[in-house]
């Protein structure tokens, strides 16, 4: 399946990636090549095959409902680009 520039832009927007006008064709071509590789899957019939989400045939373990973590806000916020008054700051969200 060939991917055109506008489709690439649409996906890039979903993934919050900026692709410059100059790169868009190149990116579209590369992805089209990859999709061609992927499309080899379509060569076989899998109608009756159950999808496998996970290599393990196991079930979810449950966690006891107890508090195991304490407050390390100040330590964690040293990792952040911008904080104030204990809040993480981002450019104003316009709703």
């Amino acid at each position: 399946m060939a991917l055109d520039k506008s489709e690439v832009e649409k996906i890039a927007q979903l993934a919050r990636l900026h692709i410059s006008e100059a790169d868009a064709d190149e990116v579209a071509n590369r992805i089209t090549d990859i999709l061609a590789l992927i499309d080899q899957m379509q060569s076989i019939d899998t109608e009756s095959v159950e999808p496998m989400a996970h290599p393990l045939d196991a079930v979810q373990r449950l966690r006891v409902d107890e508090i195991t973590e304490s407050d390390h806000r100040d330590e964690f916020q040293t990792l952040a680009p911008e904080t104030q008054d204990g809040l993480y700051l981002v450019p104003k969200v316009i709703e």
């Binding site: 489709e7 996906i11 993934a15 992805i31 990859i34 999709l35 899957m41 379509q42 159950e50 999808p51």
Partner: peptide
Amino acid sequence: RRILVGTYALSAGYYDAYYRKAQKIRRL
């Protein structure tokens, strides 16, 4: 590139042809 491919494979209308299909191949 891989983020874009993955986003595309999961996007509306392509999920069955890509993600679900791949999971079936995985079973095989």
